[in-house]
């Protein structure tokens, strides 16, 4: 037994990891059962920032990520857009990452065009698209949007976009919402937008790798943070609690939020993070188990060497 684990081929570990993620995905996919979420204060802060703004406020949504981080960030991006749309805010989408516009397109296609058919492009939401230069872009648009964004991503001139008429720079925004996978992202928004212009409010959703690094900015420079997939799941739970009756499936019946078993009757696209917490739980347990077994082997080995 000891020798088996000591000489374990790493491919067995890979197989275990595969099963720990695959089996829960299939079980949750087939049964629809998920774990309940209890949102933490930081996630509540994100929710409150968007929720407490009066309807019609201007929200800049910068989607600074690409498909490589979609697993963690797409659920946040979806929920941010849903929450802003449901609350009636004006949404200005942009991206500091080259592939960010695709992420914005996905959100507009799947969320706004499908579930908010009344919203008009140019009046309720606009896709400003991508500009290169990373923090260099923030540095320009913090004082002047039109220098870089003379048109939106469709080629409509700035002056012909009704919701842009009273917008000159990022400083005119009531809130910045950032979905960030790394450089350039939340850190740069904090450095070049919120810190020099402390009147600006900002919340962010970011990857697990970044989240711990952003805590020193909270709460003075960053007013709310969704960290990794767990943050996404908690935020989903909060938005569902507030707007679940609007997003529930048609077959949901009297109680739109949950059925008799306590499972959500919400369209799957709005519970992506909550669903993902199943494989997450099993895989985390595997990680802990692997570390413990690895250490047992190490200590047994050390004791044996000591005896020799």
């Amino acid at each position: 037994m000891y020798e088996f684990f000591r000489d374990l081929d790493r491919r067995w570990i890979f197989l275990m990891m595969f099963l720990c993620v695959a089996v829960p995905i299939i079980i949750i996919g087939a049964t629809g059962k998920t774990f309940p979420e209890e949102p933490t204060q930081l996630v509540r802060a994100v929710f409150d920032e968007i929720e407490n703004l009066p309807s019609g406020s201007k929200v800049l949504l910068s989607y600074d990520y690409d498909p490589a981080s979609e697993g963690e960030l797409a659920p946040m991006a979806t929920m941010f857009a849903y929450h802003c749309a449901a609350k009636g805010h004006k949404m200005y989408f942009m991206a500091l990452w080259p592939v960010g516009p695709q992420m914005v397109d996905d959100t507009i296609e799947n969320i706004i065009k499908k579930d908010f058919k009344d919203l008009k492009y140019g009046e309720d939401y606009v896709n400003l698209g991508y500009k290169s230069g990373y923090e260099g872009v923030i540095k320009v648009i913090i004082t002047d949007f039109t220098e870089l964004y003379s048109t939106d991503t469709r080629g409509t001139p700035w002056s012909a976009i009704p919701m842009c008429h009273d917008v000159n720079s990022v400083q005119d925004m009531d809130l910045i919402v950032n979905v960030s996978a790394g450089y350039a992202g939340t850190k740069e928004w904090v450095q070049y937008a919120v810190t020099p212009y402390p009147k600006l409010r900002m919340v962010a959703g970011c990857t697990g790798v970044q989240a711990p690094l952003l805590y020193p900015y909270i709460p003075q420079q960053l007013h709310g943070l969704l960290g990794a997939i767990k943050g996404a799941a908690e935020y989903e739970a909060l938005v569902i609690e507030a707007y679940g009756d609007k997003m529930a499936r048609k077959d949901a019946g009297d109680n739109p939020l949950t059925d008799d078993n306590g499972d959500y009757l919400i369209p799957g696209k709005y519970t992506e993070g909550i669903r993902r917490m199943g494989p997450q739980l099993v895989a985390h347990l595997l990680m802990i188990l692997l570390i413990i077994v690895g250490n047992v082997i190490y200590f047994v080995e050390r004791r044996r060497e000591g005896r020799r």
Binding site: I25, G71, G208, A228, G268, R275, Q280
Partner: peptide, 30 residues
């Protein structure tokens, strides 16, 4: 801890693609 959490989420979405879009084993999006 947070890095592990992130990495697993990135893997999970690929498996969801394979099981849902390709193999039609699950249908979480209805």
């Amino acid at each position: 801890g947070y890095t592990v959490m992130g990495r697993i989420a990135l893997f999970a979405i690929r498996l969801e693609f394979l099981f849902d879009d390709w193999l039609w084993l699950i249908d979480p999006l209805g």
